[in-house]
Deep mutational scan, measured.
Amino acid sequence: MQAFVKTLTGKTITLEVEPSDTIENVKAKIQDKEGIPPDQQRLIFAGKQLEDGRTLSDYNIQKESTLHLVLR
Rank of each mutant, 00 (worst) to 15 (best):
I30K: 00
A28L: 14
G53E: 11
P38S: 14
I61P: 03
G35K: 06
Q2M: 13
P37D: 07
H68A: 06
S20E: 10
R54V: 06
S57E: 12
L43H: 00
L67K: 01
M1T: 04
V26Q: 00
S20W: 14
T7S: 06
L67G: 01
R72D: 12
T9P: 04
G47Q: 04
E24C: 08
I36D: 02
D32Q: 14
L71Y: 08
S57T: 08
L50A: 02
T7N: 05
Q49D: 15
K63R: 12
V26P: 00
G35W: 03
I13L: 08
G35A: 05
E16W: 15
E51Y: 08
T22D: 03
H68N: 08
L69R: 00
K29I: 06
L15K: 00
I61G: 02
K33G: 04
I61T: 04
T12C: 12
I61S: 03
T55E: 03
L71T: 10
G10R: 03
R54D: 05
A3Y: 10
I44C: 12
P19Y: 09
K11D: 07
T7C: 11
L67A: 02
D21H: 05
T22R: 08
K11S: 08
Q40C: 11
R42I: 15
I36N: 03
I61H: 03
I61V: 08
E64H: 11
I23R: 00
K63H: 15
R42H: 13
D39V: 10
E16I: 14
P19M: 10
P37V: 05
R72T: 14
I13S: 02
Q40F: 09
F45V: 03
P37E: 07
K6N: 06
K48T: 13
K63S: 15
I44W: 15
L71A: 08
D52A: 07
T9N: 13
E24M: 14
K29N: 03
D58W: 11
L43T: 00
E18P: 02
T7R: 06
D21C: 06
L71P: 09
F4C: 07
N60K: 09
L67H: 02
D58Y: 15
I36R: 02
D39C: 12
I30E: 00
I44L: 11
G47K: 04
I44M: 12
L67C: 01
L56Q: 00
F4M: 07
T14W: 08
V5H: 01
Q49W: 15
D21L: 05
V26K: 00
F4L: 08
Q62K: 12
E16K: 09
D39E: 14
E64D: 15
T14R: 10
F45Q: 03
E18K: 14
A28R: 15
E24A: 15
L15P: 00
M1E: 03
G35S: 06
N60D: 10
I13D: 01
Q62C: 08
G10P: 02
D21G: 03
P37T: 06
K27W: 03
T12L: 13
E24L: 15
P19L: 12
K27E: 01
A28D: 07
P38E: 07
A28I: 14
L56K: 00
D21A: 06
T7E: 04
G35N: 07
V70F: 14
T14Y: 10
K48F: 11
E24F: 15
L69P: 00
Q2C: 09
G10Q: 04
N60M: 09
I30P: 01
V26M: 06
G47Y: 04
S65R: 06
Q62P: 12
K33L: 13
K63D: 15
L8A: 14
L8T: 14
K11M: 10
I30R: 00
S57P: 02
L69A: 02
L71V: 12
Q49E: 15
L67R: 01
R42W: 11
E51R: 09
L67S: 01
K33R: 10
